[in-house]
Nucleic acid binder design. Structure first.
Length: 399
RNA sequence: GGGUGGAUGGCAGAGUGGCCUAAUGCACCUGACUGUAAAUCAGGCGUCUUCGGACUUCGGCGGUUCAAAUCCGUCUCCACCCA
């Protein structure tokens, strides 16, 4: 057995990984040359996948490169049920329509990381909608109520007297049965999915299959340091534009840099350790590490060239406070217009009050000159000049 | 089926007749600092304004009152408990 392969597998089993269930067993199988079926499930709750999801997707990519079969299950059926494991409150039940809409964009997003031609996609409604009560009863008998409510977030909700619907009890059964349906050898998921992942093993046993192994990846903090979650608006989405993506990463606290390197890029661990030590000894400026991180991540989703451009844009606009080269023009709707009305029509302010506030607080400038008069009138002599609002909003005036 | 407690600004959550555009925290916006940040600090955070103010908001509708987020009626929705 060659050493390279073993090293690679060791990294797969440890980098960004919280726990592997039956680690030795899994390692052995990965080394054996056997082609495994690797399951990964996504609920179409939001049209955007974020960097938190990408941790698992990168892991899948590593495995795909070793020749294993990736099976992605779009939870169109479970999506309308609502998973309780990563939520502090009951998840709203999704409309079928919303699910369909979200699902469409997934392939594109996943394709930024995986070779989707080699991925097998399923929707779990394929098999779940055909189960009858007899079958569901059999499955439901596998778990006890005590097991279900022993979970931390369920316990917390019970304690807070918040509502837990019976429907939510069904969720782990479904996800577990997905493993049976696709005959998974390995399932990858976040640590918040522990119970659901384990349920796959139980379910497979019941259906006389060999229980899958489980690889749980860490969850990652969002740009504001809290857990990354679509409902908190602190995500970096795979479909974010290069400048936006890079900007979001740059706005994170420094303490997340190394964690992101490990989880969201494939820079070698050696190099990451060197950077970590460098920052500790103050030989490396965290800003430089962070911009490298941001560029690396953008590169994965938009390619080298776009990543380089985004980085240059960032340095010139934010570090050097220059007006960027390609400011989007916005034509004035009238031959003469007050600065306030122009800001509103160009989307630089939400209301007249908002625009006025921004001016009064010194946040608005034209070609670098601060505007102090909220009643300033713009006419065609301003054509070609650039309005700046706050740190990052620019619009070129056109008449 | 019965009972109890609820619904307040983007979220959480005070307020139970006038001092309520409504405390506080989070989120957000602007400025300062900086490494771009984070942290910190200052200001802001309904709309309109001739900058004096004016108007609108506390689940919906209706009422009492000089005055209602607050009292009454009714409707809708939610949670918990008992059976």
């Amino acid at each position: 057995m060659n050493k390279d392969l073993e090293n690679k597998i060791d990294e797969i089993l440890t980098r960004g990984v919280n726990e592997v269930i039956k680690k030795d067993h899994l390692k052995e199988r990965l080394l054996s040359g056997e082609k495994l079926r690797i399951k990964f499930g996504i609920d179409p709750t939001s049209p955007y996948l974020h960097l938190g999801r990408a941790i698992a997707l990168l892991k899948l990519k590593d495995l795909q490169e070793l020749g294993h079969k990736i099976v992605i299950i779009i939870g169109d059926f479970t999506g309308v049920i609502g998973d309780s494991s990563d939520k502090e409150s009951e998840r709203p039940i999704l409309e079928k329509k919303t699910v369909e809409k979200n699902l469409k964009t997934y392939k594109d997003q996943i394709g930024k990381i995986l070779d989707v031609d080699k991925v097998k996609f399923h929707r779990n409604s394929e098999w779940l909608k055909n189960l009858d009560y007899e079958e569901i009863s059999k499955q439901a008998d596998i778990f006890s109520l005590a097991e279900f409510i022993a979970r931390d977030n369920i316990k917390k909700r019970l304690k807070d007297d918040s509502r837990i619907s019976l429907r939510e009890l069904l969720y782990p059964l479904m996800q577990g049965y997905d493993s049976v349906a696709v005959e998974a050898d390995l399932e990858i998921g976040g640590t918040d999915q522990r119970f659901n992942l384990l349920s796959g093993r139980e379910m497979q046993r019941t259906y006389k299959q060999k229980p899958q192994d489980i690889l749980m990846v860490n969850l990652i903090e969002g740009t504001d340091g809290r857990k990354m979650s679509s409902s908190w608006g602190n995500t970096v989405n795979l479909l974010d534009e290069p400048n936006e993506m890079l900007g979001k990463i740059m706005s994170m606290g420094d303490e997340l840099i190394i964690k992101y390197f490990i989880h969201c890029t494939r820079i070698s661990m050696d190099e990451i350790r060197k950077m970590e030590d460098g920052m500790k000894d103050e030989k490396i400026n965290p800003r430089d590490a962070k911009i490298k991180l941001a560029e690396e991540i953008v590169k994965i989703y938009h390619g080298q060239e776009e990543a380089r451009k985004a980085k240059e844009y960032f340095i010139s606009t934010f570090s050097e406070r220059k007006i960027p080269d390609n400011v989007a023009p916005f034509p004035s709707p009238a031959p003469e217009i007050s600065i306030i009305d122009y800001m509103i029509s160009a989307g630089l302010a939400e209301s007249k009050s908002d625009a006025r506030r921004k001016i009064e607080q010194g946040g608005v400038s034209i070609d670098g000159e601060k505007i102090t008069d909220p009643n300033k009138i713009l006419d065609d002599s301003f054509s070609g000049k650039v309005v700046k609002v706050g740190k990052k909003d620019f619009v070129k005036i056109v008449f």
